[in-house]
Amino acid sequence: MIPVGLAFARSLAQKPELILHAPDKRHPSLAGTYLAACSV
């Protein structure tokens, strides 16, 4: 299991200005995709 959700939550708690989701709020942005890849 990849803890991407935890990585997103921790990142947004520390830097709320990060944009981790695309405008549709369902898909990751480029930064969110990178964070997910780093979580593996």
Rank of each mutant, 00 (worst) to 15 (best):
M1K: 08
M1D: 11
I2K: 14
I2R: 14
I2D: 09
I2G: 07
P3G: 10
V4L: 05
V4T: 11
G5F: 01
G5W: 02
G5E: 07
L6M: 13
L6I: 13
A7N: 06
A9N: 09
A9K: 14
A9T: 09
S11I: 02
S11R: 07
S11L: 11
S11Q: 13
S11G: 08
S11D: 07
S11K: 11
L12I: 04
L12A: 00
L12C: 02
A13V: 03
A13H: 02
A13M: 01
A13T: 03
Q14D: 08
P16H: 01
P16G: 01
E17L: 06
E17M: 05
E17N: 15
I19F: 10
I19R: 15
L20G: 08
L20I: 11
L20Y: 09
H21C: 13
H21L: 15
A22V: 07
P23F: 01
P23C: 05
P23I: 01
D24K: 01
D24H: 00
K25E: 15
K25A: 15
K25W: 09
K25P: 06
R26E: 13
R26M: 13
R26H: 11
H27R: 15
H27N: 13
H27A: 07
H27P: 03
P28N: 11
P28Y: 15
P28V: 12
P28W: 11
S29D: 04
S29K: 02
S29F: 04
S29L: 04
L30R: 14
L30P: 09
L30K: 15
A31M: 01
A31K: 08
A31N: 07
A31T: 03
G32Q: 02
G32H: 03
T33I: 13
T33K: 14
T33N: 12
T33E: 14
Y34I: 15
Y34S: 15
Y34R: 15
L35M: 06
A36W: 00
A36D: 05
A36K: 03
A36Q: 02
A37P: 00
A37S: 06
C38I: 06
C38K: 14
C38V: 05
S39V: 03
S39N: 06
S39G: 06
S39L: 04
S39E: 03
V40F: 10
